[in-house]
Computed example of a mutant assay.
Amino acid sequence: MQYETRRLPRLMVAAAVVAVLAACDGGDTTTSAAAPAAPPPPQVTVQPVAMADVPVAQEYAGRTQGAREVQVRARVTGILLERTYQEGQTVQQGDLLFRIDPQPFRVRLDAAEAGLQQARATLQQAQRNWNRIDELWKSRTISASTHDDARAALDLARASVAAAEAEVESARIDLGYTSVEAPLSGVTSLEDLPEGSLVGTGAGDSLLATITQLDPIHVVFSLPEAEQMRERVLLESGKASRIEEQGRVPVDVVFGDGSVHAQEGWVDFTASGVDPATGTIRARAVVPNPDHRLLPGQFVRVRVKGLVRNDVAVIPDKALMQGPQGPFVYVVDAEGKAQARPVQTGALVEDGRIVEGGLAEGDTVITEGVIKVRPGAPVQAAPPAEAAETPASEEAQG
């Protein structure tokens, strides 16, 4: 009996411990059985699809070249006395560039003018002689031979005067050639012959300098044949139209840093055939260049404008996703769920990417938050303005 009395407290303690453990296990079971709360639908930014006429600009690689490049050459032989400009200077048409020693040509002009005076004196004498002979001939006091000789002498004197006048004009022109003027406005090159050189009229000793016209300047570029054919199909089918300014196709010139030349140019030439070596069509644009920012030989991008795509949709490029079957976008259906929609994309324009097919007027496209979207799952859609205000309001509350 004493042993059982001593054992009883121990049994009671053990029972109490078991009861406590059971209570703890029961609480955990209740907690684990509770279902977790469902996450809210992701918030996304949406944009309704609106069909409109969209201007399209196409860019091509191009290279600049002077609108005109003229070689300044000597037209008479002589000593080059002076160069009147600084090399690399911009000159205007008619500016004096070089002086060739004029003295020999002045002497030749003086001699030609003296010869002209002599010929005119001879003509006057022949005219007076003819007048006398003709009167005698009418009275039949001289022979026909004498009359004919007087007439021939008069005609010869007149011809001599004409030849002398031509000689004077030639000498005057050569004297004028000793002052070499700029044939056009442009930028001068390095001189080819220094002052004091003997210049001539041959190919090897007549070149004095070169002038390149920079305003306007030409930009040469090539149009891919396939792209031109596609544009022609769009124009003929009515899916595109061409807007020209004063009958010309406008262009912008884009520099390597992305900046755009201040003056707009236009296309003035397109080849009538395709280059078989490159499969491209050669074209040229004329661009005003008053500040000479464009220089010959410069690589630029030519942005050809004037093409308009008719009745197409434009969406932000970031809304496009790429899948195994090609590009697609997420649209929000009538139940507020995101659905994948395959699309056919077109050119990249200022406001986004043209969608050729797959979207209709009034469709709601998800443009931001696409990474959080699952096909068929509900989303919380907001237009761009509202979506931009939501983070700001949350930050203010915080």
Rank of each mutant, 00 (worst) to 15 (best):
G115K: 08
L116P: 03
Q117C: 09
Q117W: 04
Q117K: 10
Q117D: 09
Q118L: 06
Q118A: 15
A119T: 02
R120M: 04
R120H: 05
R120Y: 06
R120L: 06
R120S: 01
A121H: 06
A121M: 04
T122K: 07
L123S: 10
L123W: 00
L123A: 12
L123P: 03
Q124P: 12
Q124S: 15
Q124D: 13
Q125H: 04
Q125C: 00
A126M: 00
Q127P: 10
Q127Y: 15
R128Q: 15
R128S: 14
R128Y: 12
W130F: 14
W130H: 12
N131Y: 14
N131M: 13
N131Q: 15
N131I: 13
R132G: 02
I133L: 15
E135T: 06
E135Y: 11
W137F: 15
W137N: 08
K138P: 09
S139Y: 13
S139R: 12
R140F: 07
T141F: 05
T141Q: 11
T141K: 08
T141W: 03
T141S: 15
I142V: 00
S143C: 06
S143P: 05
A144E: 14
A144F: 12
S145G: 07
H147L: 15
D148F: 14
D149Q: 13
D149Y: 11
A150Y: 00
A150D: 01
A150G: 12
A152G: 09
A152T: 12
L154P: 01
L154C: 05
L154E: 02
L156V: 06
L156D: 10
L156C: 04
L156K: 10
A157Q: 03
A157H: 03
R158Y: 08
A159Q: 06
A159P: 03
A159R: 04
S160H: 15
S160G: 14
S160Y: 14
S160C: 12
A162N: 14
A163E: 12
A163F: 10
A164I: 00
E165R: 07
A166K: 05
A166R: 06
A166W: 08
A166T: 04
E167D: 15
E167R: 14
S170G: 10
R172W: 13
I173D: 00
I173N: 08
L175P: 07
G176H: 02
G176W: 02
S179N: 07
S179E: 03
S179K: 04
S179W: 01
E181Q: 08
A182L: 05
A182C: 12
A182P: 13
A182S: 10
A182Y: 08
P183M: 02
L184D: 07
L184I: 10
L184K: 02
S185G: 01
S185Q: 04
S185C: 03
S185E: 04
G186S: 05
G186P: 01
G186N: 03
V187E: 00
T188N: 02
T188K: 00
S189R: 14
L190D: 08
L190T: 11
L190F: 09
E191S: 14
E191Y: 09
D192N: 14
D192E: 14
L193D: 07
P194N: 03
P194V: 04
E195M: 09
G196S: 01
G196N: 01
G196E: 04
S197M: 10
S197G: 09
